Simulated scan of single mutants.
Amino acid sequence: MAYHSGYGAHGSKHRARAAPDPPPLFDDTSGGYSSQPGGYPASGADVAFSVNHLLGDPMANVAMAYGSSIASHGKDMVHKELHRFVSVSKLKYFFAVDTAYVAKKLGLLVFPYTHQNWEVQYSHDVPLPPRQDLNAPDLYIPTMAFITYVLLAGMALGIQKRSPPLFSPEVLGLCASTALVWVVMEVLALLLGLYLATVRSDLSTFHLLAYSGYKYVGMILSVLTGLLFGSDGYYVALAWTSSALMYFIVRSLRTAALGPDSMGGPVPRQRLQLYLTLGAAAFQPLIIYWLTFHLVR
């Protein structure tokens, strides 16, 4: 029995000796993180401390200030290059309109025959903005009329019962680009004519864009009348809007181009200026018809 007791004690001592742990397969890299379970990074307070420490670094402040100066310098360069090609102050002048001006100007474009005074009003040698002078050209009405024409053209082509249908998303882009190209060509032709005729006036590219863009009002009225009353209504509206626009262009451009400074010039030069104005007016009905006749069937 004593031997049995000794064997049991010896066996217990043998089993109490633990085997050595196997070597780890990978090195423990969690020491770089905080002593949180799972080896995750520090909490939000520690991250905020790191950010505040970074912002408090003088080198970081210098880098941020240098980056801000570069961004400000780049912004100034963009504005400078933009002012070289487009004067923002002059562009704002052509959009200085209100509701009363827009309503009166639309009425003048549709029925200009009773209007008497066509001269642009000045105040301290500065032309009054459109909202204060009905004769001042604007770009608000041409811009909105251009967008309306493109949408109306898409609707007119969409309701035409043809096989295959004429309307597609690409049609809107085609109508817009075609109308825009015609206006650009017209403005370039007018600028060339003014240069060749040596006209001394205050007409700028924005003025010519405004006068050329007023045709979209007549185009919209012609298409709407054609959709409501057919081709006969379209041609009646086309004749009315074209004659009204021609009268408006002749009176407006003649007053602007043949100002007091050019009245005392040579007679041949005055004739060239008058022919240029008449040619610009006579070209309007052709463009209106070319851009609208296919929308009314």
Rank of each mutant, 00 (worst) to 15 (best):
A153L: 05
L109E: 00
A103F: 12
P127Q: 03
D138F: 02
F94N: 00
S168P: 03
D76S: 14
L139D: 07
V110A: 15
V97E: 01
V51P: 00
Y66E: 10
S69A: 13
S35L: 12
P112Q: 08
A65T: 11
V102N: 04
P164W: 14
V62D: 06
L166R: 13
N117C: 02
M144A: 15
Y93H: 15
P164N: 11
E81S: 12
L106T: 10
A48F: 14
G158D: 13
L128F: 02
F146G: 08
H79P: 01
P130Q: 10
D98N: 15
A145K: 03
S34Q: 08
A45K: 14
V102K: 03
V171C: 11
V171H: 11
I159Y: 06
T143V: 13
D125P: 00
L54H: 04
G38W: 05
A153K: 00
G38L: 07
P164T: 13
G67M: 12
S34I: 02
Y33V: 07
Y122Q: 05
P169D: 01
I141K: 03
S34A: 09
S34N: 03
S35C: 08
V88I: 14
G107I: 04
P112E: 08
H73S: 09
F49E: 12
S35V: 11
Y113T: 03
